[in-house]
């Protein structure tokens, strides 16, 4: 199945104004009253929780109402429709498909809306390996980090084995790495990103979205964007730091979406030759390092502040 990754997450939120302001401050661009996008067109749709157009929500109170996957072509949509003869597959007015997975999450599938990203990844120079153009500063005070693309979604699920089996056997996702007894990191066939999904086994009353994430151009943009969020009064949940599985830099913020919203960058890329790893979850295996924000400060000659 030529599934690329999440195109769009649809939310039914309690505080519409706060959620929309948060999305803008995070760095997404409003495309209309409901849709806020990254550079490549992927994004989030924000609606009030009682909006009649939304699919029914989970009983757990999760505000995530639907995950819409982008697929490569109509043939993939046809293959998905043919695969799910065991449940209702709705064909919506826009030609996308809608079904409910084995965990009860509403999924959508559409020919992807994501455009080719023309932004360059952060370039890093090292002795003998110069990657940034000559005379090009690596960072300036006026740089504006730009949110590039919807990266991944992490779900609390009551049975990560069933969740993994559904995405592996029915949708062709591959498990790239695994936290023992917790759940798998999975990537769909038409992307090389380490994961677009991670499942966390949790009690049924927790089912929902743990966090969702957009890709940035590099670690500098992750930290700069996060710093901007702190300066706007938003509260960090975890980070900045760098994960081990996927190698992605991260910074998580609590949000009015009832879950954390993350920035990531520089995720590992994999193909079918990758041998998945497994580890126990915990601080040592969740990150290579973890930093914490503090206000700007600088050493100097000492003495009274100028």
């Amino acid at each position: 199945m030529n599934i690329i990754g999440p195109d769009k997450l649809i939310w039914g939120v309690e505080d519409l104004a706060a959620a929309k302001q948060f999305a803008v401050d995070y760095g997404l661009t409003p495309q209309n009253e409901h849709y806020y996008s990254a550079l490549d067109g992927t994004g989030i749709e924000i609606r009030a929780k009682d909006d009649k157009s939304l699919p029914a929500g989970l009983t757990t109170g999760s505000m995530l109402r639907k995950t819409v996957y982008g697929v490569k072509d109509q043939a993939t949509l046809d293959a998905i429709k043919a695969e799910f003869t065991d449940r209702e597959v709705k064909v919506l007015a826009d030609g996308s498909l809608e079904l409910v997975d084995d965990m009860g999450f509403v999924l959508g599938f559409q020919i992807t809306i994501r455009t080719t990203n023309t932004e360059k990844a952060e370039r890093v120079n090292a002795p003998g390996d110069v990657n940034r153009e000559i005379n090009q500063p690596g960072v300036t005070k006026t740089d504006v980090p730009r949110v590039q693309s919807l990266s991944h979604v992490v779900y609390f699920v009551p049975d990560s084995v069933i969740a993994e089996a559904f995405f592996a056997n029915r949708l062709g996702f591959v498990t790239t790495d695994r936290f023992t007894g917790v759940g798998p990191f999975m990537r769909p066939a038409a992307t090389q990103d380490h994961h677009t999904i991670f499942f966390i086994q949790a009690p049924a009353f927790m089912q929902g979205c743990e966090h969702f994430t957009f890709h940035m151009a590099g670690p500098t943009d992750v930290v700069q964007a996060g710093t901007n969020m702190v300066n706007k009064g938003y509260q960090s949940f975890w980070g900045p730091g760098r994960h081990l599985f996927g190698s992605n830099w991260f910074w998580y913020f609590k949000s009015p979406f009832g879950c954390n919203m993350e920035y990531d960058a520089d995720m590992d890329q994999h193909d079918e030759s990758w041998q998945g790893r497994e580890a126990m979850i915990g601080p040592d295996n969740s990150q290579a390092f973890l930093l914490q924000y503090r206000e700007k400060w600088a050493p100097g000659p000492g003495g009274p502040k100028p």
Binding site: E14, D15, K254, G258, N260
Partner: peptide, 17 residues
């Protein structure tokens, strides 16, 4: 200071709702 939900009925943890 954003500890309450929209209708100030409950205290909310924004990490996971």
């Amino acid at each position: 200071h954003h500890y309450l939900n929209n209708v100030a009925e409950y205290i909310v943890c924004a990490a996971h709702g």
